[in-house]
Nucleic acid binder design. Structure first.
Lengths: 359, 359
DNA sequence: CTGTTAGCGCTTTCAA
DNA sequence: TTGAAAGCGCTAACAG
């Protein structure tokens, strides 16, 4: 069962291991006849170069780390697919890690990835300062930030135009006649959440509407806690340092208030799912009782009753772009953050004019 | 920027590199005072052992391959999370690859993983014979089959009781009064699909109902083609060797037939989504015009109108179990396929008695 | 209790 | 046009 190595190939072909290496990598001229002998030996012996040994010799492992919050989040899932497709095409492997937005898990993952000598890293950082991340950057490992930014990290970032998407969404609601529009968001540390907040604000201000702080509600964005299936199945999440109420709690309070908003803009798909559960529980009909618009499209969104109006993000392309950018960095090319990718307002039927003229 | 190695640590601590190695790995006794010196040196220099070098020396990389069909499929996504949670806890990294049910992609992925000297493999095989997979097995790499089996491969398999789940689903429909119950499935090569077929058959036979071959319809299970979002975003799929019509085509034919079935049992979540789109297009109401029951729960299923009746699979646990089994194999323990995990019939509201007495 | 040293399998000067 | 040999950073005998 002893694995066969380039030495075996060399012997079989009657050449040195240097020559074997060179024909495999095409890294210097080899007489056609010699090359053929080596090639034959390779196929006869079914030789596969050992990437670990090569990695040690070249200090390049062809492995890329992909660190995201949770692969079960359809947003990241689509992104991950974009990344993997792009990387595998370049014969790079992608190692993925989940952080659950937990800085401790983030540190641990990065530690392991660093030890593994990854050639590059694509990360959707938690947003909390992360020593391992900065260390990786200092060590010269190419890094691209995905969707969000990490404090203190100098690295190109691939994301969407969050403020603009939020702005459009809220403007759409305002045009429909809404005056009191809530914003449901997740962790403050996550840059997308605050950028979307800014878009919400700008739209209100431009319309001369008051920006009431109590219209901004925060909830744990990690899963729709009222959803039976994942909840009962989910592993206990890390949550270190993060304590936020569930969507259900938060909306229960907001939407039973006498001066409740007539519309809500939601920052993520998981929060949206939670909100939908909350509506059901509170007996609120959408859009009759409350209009809803959210970030992230979902493949079931058009089938929903009502079909969901959303701000669509180019998820797959986000991952693809991040991977392409990383490849450029690995090749040593100079890169800069590309302009934010455009989002798209998809109007379906979860928003309607407010019944009582806008709350 | 020259990376620091165990040699640097040794020098700094005034010991040999062997001692450094031993304190790091706790692999032989080191005097407390010496150990402390080494530890200090490590932290002063911020030394991180190079896993690649270690991998070369020990021929153990602490990397596991996870090969699935498509990470965008929520089934695999949950499984992958179970795998990653389990592996990361053991300080193993997981490299994931998508095959798109394409044997060519499968081969390519495995080839790369083999070169990378993975310590183990968890795979949901396409079901087509796969040379690289057998080669990996021959080379003694621990493998566990996930959800399905690959022809000719001797490896423990972690899956659910597919036939039983299908049987229960169809029995439920029969109890409701249905007589003509269709089965919508994906690729024949995928073992789960045929096992579920067997369950469907058994339920019909036991009830004395005819098993009509034209009630079994096959469609491309890879994505809901009528769903606008993923379709427009999706990368061109591989599809080598697989040609199957879309759900829309297949159901268009089946359900406009005069003697159309009054109920349908669907083998996967992606096919279900496609069916839901098809219903919409055909103007069929569920469950009034047709009852639907499917494999795989989804977090939005309870919110759907009608809430979907499903056979739930323990997805997360499937991944977790596979990973645990793999760890045992890596430790050299003897293992066998565990009994299939139980599925659960979740009755919601997408099935009702047939209007005309069961077609 | 600790150091020396021979690899692991490959790449890459340097020589020829 | 090709070979010899020195590493890459670590582990694991073997010595002492």
């Amino acid at each position: 069962m002893t694995r066969i190595s380039s030495k075996d190939v060399a012997e079989h072909a009657g050449v040195s291991i240097a020559t074997v290496s060179h024909v495999i990598n095409g890294t210097r001229y080899v007489r056609a006849e010699t090359r053929q002998r080596v090639l034959d030996a390779i196929s006869v012996l079914d030789y596969r170069p050992n990437a670990v040994a090569r990695g040690l010799a070249t200090s390049s492992t062809r492995e890329i780390g992909l660190v995201i919050s949770d692969i079960r989040n359809p947003f990241f899932t689509a992104v991950a697919r974009g990344v993997e497709d792009e990387l595998i095409a370049q014969r790079y492997n992608t190692i993925f890690c989940n952080t659950d937005e937990d800085p401790v898990r983030e540190e641990g993952n990065l530690h392991l990835l660093a030890a593994q000598q990854i050639d590059g890293l694509i990360i959707a950082p938690t947003g909390e300062p992360c020593e391992s991340l900065l260390a990786l950057a200092r060590a010269g490992v190419p890094i691209v930030q995905l969707d969000r930014t990490s404090p203190g990290l100098e690295a190109p970032m691939v994301g969407v135009n969050n403020a603009e998407g939020a702005y459009q969404a809220v403007r759409y609601l305002i045009a429909l006649g809404h005056r009191r529009i809530a914003y449901l968001m997740g962790f403050e540390a996550v840059s997308t959440q605050t950028e979307r907040l800014a878009g919400w604000q700008r739209a209100l201000q431009e319309a001369g509407l008051p920006v009431e702080e109590n219209l901004v509600v925060r909830a744990d964005p990690r899963f729709a806690e009222s959803a039976p299936a994942p909840a009962s199945e989910a592993a206990p999440a890390g949550m270190a340092g993060h304590v936020l109420p569930s969507v259900r709690e938060v909306l229960g309070e907001l939407l039973t208030h006498p001066a409740r908003p007539s519309a809500i803009f939601i920052a993520t798909n998981q929060l949206t799912l939670g909100a939908l559960y909350a509506f059901e529980e509170l007996g609120l009909r959408c859009p009759e009782d409350i209009s809803l618009i959210s970030f992230d499209d979902q493949d079931w969104a058009p089938l929903f009753r009502p079909p969901l109006t959303v701000v669509r993000q180019p998820t797959y392309r986000l991952g693809q772009t991040a991977a392409q950018l990383l490849m450029q960095m690995i090749r040593g090319e100079a890169v800069a953050s590309p302009p934010p990718l455009a989002v798209e307002l998809i109007v379906r039927a979860s928003c309607s004019p407010p019944v009582n003229g806008g709350g």
